[in-house]
Write a protein that binds this DNA or RNA. Structure first.
Lengths: 342, 342
DNA sequence: CTGAAAGCGCTTACAG
DNA sequence: CTGAAAGCGCTTACAG
């Protein structure tokens, strides 16, 4: 009858100990823990008191063994970590997911992996029944193994995957094209006529869709959507693309930028060149991330509810795991936030 | 004899299935999986072939139930997430940890929590035997519940905790004071005489230690360490503190900054004021993060091996869990990287 | 409403 | 070197 293990740490109390303490059977304790209504108030009270007294926490492994559910969900980040962590958009999504899972019993398991070469450990981990589901947060969500993942377990993507795999896929996103059109239209309404775009990558849905939104808005206004340069959503790429744009199209009077981070990079370049914002060139960003208001010029930008997107991913996953009916796509609203840059 | 569950997903093969397939007992399969040498080559080969054929992955829950080890380690982030994810230092540490755990069987579990008010869920999770150990990455690592955590399970801190709790604590860090002195000395050697500091918070070890390193270097050079302003390591706080510094000490000819992020903020302000860097004011940062080379001016800075620190945290933890002797502190080397700002 | 019993998938003495 | 058996801490029909 020892209650400490060899290293001196207290052995955790078990269900059995609680049962003894409460003077009931293990079954009853289990029922109370799992919220069964097949328990008399007296028994329930006794059990709760015993749990309190013993500071009992159910053993996850035992539970998951019998329920064949791991109560863990993978958070897969198939993205260069510098990129990932440098982008407040991802941070917000992650936080939203964490918040959405807070009241559940699920735990988040972190899988940092290369987008192109997931380790076999990661693959085995994900497909080997070690988690009940997976979140994938990335701009690269067209990667092969990830789209296949849906055949092994429920997967919820942050942002529409580039291609859909054989497994059914779920995602939370905004209407990127419409949102980009709104941002661009704002520039049109301001009287700008030579509106460029600092676009995202062509192999990412968010990149493609925002570009078509911009194009459509220009077409609708009878303007030529010909001023375009590409970046990869990062700060540095925004600066580089802005330089390219100025080189090719020195006449531009506005630029719609596919991410706030790129917009910040662009702003730096414009400033270096002595080009006044918004007077000479008006700038509209995308995200409404903390970066938008961190610099000297407050960025006019298209707000997307990043944290809410994460939260929605979590509740989608919870519904999926709970066997509730779930729509495959959840599209959240965006809106324009007008500040100083346009 | 069904091998698919109700939802159509294949039921995972068990140890028993492997044993049947290989024509041996479960004991033998288990021995092969756990690398016992008490197995004949023939049996081992048969088992390995069966595992391959069945694509067998051991059930974690069952294993951890019998071994009473969870094979999970918590990654606790008691920090405002915007702050956390905005700082490449944390990203690098996290990546280092992930890399260090890659070849192990341990999984990282993510706990985003408020520094001051950890949820009871988090506390119960951490102390309730759900993980075998915990990493704490934060600048705030003096928080009460975290220093106590060491009594419940092995904890490795990224950065020396402000105070040590009753549990034994382990950490990986650099010699912040010496590193800061090196950075400051570089400014002295450049002939600067009115060297200010953009310091970190006074309630964080890294803040305090870097400030004393600066102070010492100035004292040693016979200079007065009186020009000081505080930030919280973030970009925005760096800009604000730089403004304050210029207000109070317009005569400064150099500034040592306790983080690259703050240095970037400071650089923005200097540029706005038309103050040339490094000619009018030389700037030395701290971290050597990607931020140091992202802006228009390449930052001279004190390099700290952030990713290696994460890696060291992981191997420290692995040693701890493996019962190997472990020193309580692991101090990694730093060095100055001279670029354009000083 | 309650309890005894079986079983989830492993590991590990124990006996051979 | 190998296998039968017990047991890790739970949950859940089943019988009362």
């Amino acid at each position: 009858m020892t209650d400490t293990s060899q290293n001196g740490r207290r052995a955790a109390p078990t269900l059995e100990a609680v049962a003894a303490e409460a003077g009931v059977s293990k079954s009853t304790v289990s029922r109370v823990i799992n919220g069964s209504n097949q328990v008399s108030p007296d028994a329930a009270a006794a059990v709760e008191a015993a749990i309190e007294r013993l500071n009992y926490v159910p053993n996850r492994a035992a539970r998951s063994l019998v329920n064949s559910r791991t109560m863990a969900i993978a958070l897969v980040v198939p993205e260069d970590t510098t990129r990932f962590f440098g982008d407040p958009y991802f941070a917000a999504i992650m936080q939203g997911i964490a918040r959405g899972l807070e009241t559940s019993d699920y735990v988040l398991t972190l899988q940092l992996t290369s987008p192109s070469h997931p380790s076999t450990k990661t693959i085995r981990y994900l497909t080997g029944g070690n988690v009940d589901g997976a979140f994938v947060i990335s701009h690269h969500s067209g990667d092969h193994f990830l789209t296949e993942l849906g055949t092994s377990l429920p997967v919820v993507f942050g942002g529409r995957p580039l291609r859909t795999g054989p497994g059914s896929s779920y995602f939370v996103d905004v209407d990127n094209a419409a949102a980009a059109a709104t941002g661009t239209k704002h520039l049109v309404d301001l009287g700008r006529r030579r509106i460029a775009i600092l676009a995202g990558p062509v192999n990412m849905p968010a990149g493609v869709d925002r570009t078509s939104g911009w194009r459509e808005a220009l077409n609708e206004a009878g303007l030529d959507p010909k001023r375009i340069a590409h970046g990869d959503f990062s700060h540095a790429s925004g600066a580089a693309a802005m330089r390219e744009l100025l080189e090719q199209h020195p006449d531009l009077d506005a630029v719609f930028v596919a991410s706030d981070l790129m917009a910040m990079g662009a702003l730096t370049v414009l400033r270096d060149r002595g080009i006044a914002v918004p007077d000479d060139v008006a700038v509209v960003g995308f995200d409404d991330s903390p970066a938008a208001v961190a610099g000297p010029i407050q960025l006019t930008t298209v707000h997307q509810p990043s944290q809410e997107m994460g939260y929605a991913m979590a509740s989608m996953m919870l519904d999926l795991l709970g066997g509730k009916p779930v729509e495959h796509a959840r599209i959240l609203p965006t809106h324009l936030v007008v500040r100083d840059s346009a």
